[in-house]
Design a protein around this nucleic acid. Structure first.
Lengths: 107, 107
DNA sequence: CTGAATCCCTTACGATACTG
DNA sequence: CAGTATCGTAAGGGATTCAG
C-alpha cells in the first residue's frame, strides 16, 4: 500500500505521507541534507545496510516528486549526483522539528 | 523493517520515523486529532479500509509510545476509547505543517 | 560507477472465524 | 463491542548477476 497512486487517493496529506512512509525515505533526505549533493556510491555507503535496489527505487520516487534532482555526468565511468531541490528544503525544515522532538523523547 | 526496536537502533530520529512510517499510523493520529477521543468501532469506520488487526496493532504501538491513551470502560458491552496524549499534540503540530505543505504541493 | 533484471524467500497484511 | 487467533496470499525487499 505504500505505493498508492495520487489518482486513487486524492487526499494531499496521504499523498505526502505515503511518499515519506517508504522505508529509508526520510533517512535518505536526512543524509542529503547533511552531506549536500552526493554521488550514488557515496550515498549507498552512508546509508549502511540499504540494498542497491532499494536505494535506486527510493531515489527514483523522490526524483519524480521533484524532491531531489539527478545529475548525470557522462564520463567514463559515469558520475551521477543526487541533491535536494528547493521543494525538499521545505520538507527538511519540518523533518528538523521531528528531529528535535525525537531528541527530547528518546535522546 | 518497520518494526526495528529502540535497542537495535539507537538513533532517536530513526526511532520516531520508524514509528510513524507504519501504515495508517499518521492517518490514525490525524483522525484522532480532528475527532477527539473516539471509540474503537467509530475509529474503524472513520478509517475506511483498515482491518481490525491493523487498527489494533497500530493502536497498541502508539499506546506503548504514550502517544495515545486507551480508556477501558467495563460496561456491557464494554466501551474502549482512544485519545491523544499531550505527547501526541507536539507531534500533531508538526503533522499540521506537513498538511500545509501537502496542500500547496498537491492540493 | 551506476544501475537494471532475476530469483527467491520472508513477512506483512487482509479475510475470516471465534471469544469475553 | 472490542478485540484475539489462525490461515493463506501477495508482495516487499535482499542477494546476486549482468550491462552500458
Amino acid at each position: 500500500m505504500v505505493q498508492r497512486s495520487r489518482e486513487l487517493n486524492p487526499c494531499p496529506v496521504s499523498t505526502l505521507t505515503n511518499l515519506l512512509s517508504g522505508p529509508w525515505t526520510m533517512y535518505i533526505l536526512w543524509v542529503l541534507s547533511n552531506s549536500g549533493p552526493t554521488r550514488f556510491g557515496a550515498l549507498k555507503r552512508k546509508i549502511a545496510g540499504i540494498s542497491t535496489k532499494m536505494l535506486t527505487e527510493r531515489l527514483r520516487m523522490l526524483e519524480q516528486e521533484e524532491i531531489l534532482y539527478r545529475h548525470y555526468e557522462p564520463t567514463v565511468p559515469p558520475q551521477v549526483t543526487y541533491g535536494l531541490t528547493e521543494k525538499a528544503k521545505e520538507l527538511i525544515t519540518i523533518l528538523e522539528q521531528l528531529d528535535d522532538l525525537a531528541q527530547r523523547w528518546y535522546g
